[in-house]
Computed example of a mutant assay.
Amino acid sequence: MLVDVDLLFSYNGFIKTYSRSEVIFKEGDIPRFYYQVITGSVKLNHIGEDNKELIQSILREGQSVCELLSFIDDPFPVNAIAMSECTILKVPKPEFLQLLDEHHEAAIAVRKFIAQRLYHKFIMMQNNASKYSHVRIKGILEYFKSFTDDETPYSYEVPLTRKQLASITDLRIETVIRTVKKMESEKLLKIKKGKIYF
């Protein structure tokens, strides 16, 4: 867990359960809480003018959701949607900031998490600017795997469908399917029962 659960509870944290596809917060909402995923997964997305979904991140157990907005008063630039039934620990923003002031280790962990996410976002954006589909896809897979501790080949089960990979990389789904098969033949990833392992 990014921040100790008992510590979050001691600062007026509480659990809320969300059903699959339920909105946790919407783009334009004012951040009022710190959110930490206890179980399940959450996607951050943006719906473009053409009604096309752009998935910006997928968060899992132990990770926080848009924690950087705890430090500013701007509205959310994305939607947070439950990808599965999930439980989220919510802490009111003022109490969360007080927690960070009073608990140095927690403040360091949050800052480090934000820095790692920004670092990998920069790399992901550079990869998404490539004209080569394999560079875009490999960049996304590296970004998501960066949140795990196991860096061995094929240890990470990618929690994305081919359609979601297309959404994130701004590629056509046919291009993603063809590129993933080519990457498998080059031993950059494995496919088992339709799932991608990177």
Rank of each mutant, 00 (worst) to 15 (best):
I191E: 02
K187W: 12
L118F: 08
Q164C: 01
V180F: 09
I108N: 05
K190W: 03
T152A: 03
Q116F: 05
K193R: 14
F96C: 11
G139N: 08
K192H: 13
R178C: 09
I137F: 03
E186T: 11
L141Q: 12
E105C: 02
T152C: 00
K93R: 15
E102C: 10
F144H: 12
K181R: 15
K138R: 09
K192C: 08
S185R: 07
M125Y: 03
T179Q: 05
R162Q: 10
Y156Q: 06
F144E: 12
K181E: 14
S155V: 14
Q98W: 04
R172D: 15
N128G: 00
K163R: 02
V158W: 00
L100S: 11
N127I: 01
L97T: 07
D149R: 06
T152S: 02
E95M: 12
E157T: 14
K90E: 04
K131P: 04
Y156M: 02
L189I: 13
E174W: 12
L165Y: 01
Y154L: 04
K112T: 09
K121I: 14
I177T: 15
V135E: 06
Q98I: 12
S133Q: 00
M125K: 04
S133P: 05
E105G: 02
R136K: 15
Q164R: 07
E151K: 09
A166G: 15
E105Q: 05
K138W: 01
E157V: 15
E174T: 13
D149M: 08
K145S: 01
E105I: 04
A115M: 07
T169Q: 07
Y119Q: 11
L99D: 05
I140L: 07
Q126I: 14
K192T: 14
H134D: 12
A106Y: 07
I177Q: 12
F96N: 08
M124K: 12
E95I: 11
L165I: 09
T152D: 00
K131C: 07
K93L: 11
K193S: 12
E184F: 11
E151C: 03
I173F: 06
K112H: 03
I168W: 05
E157D: 13
I168E: 09
L188P: 05
K90S: 10
E142P: 03
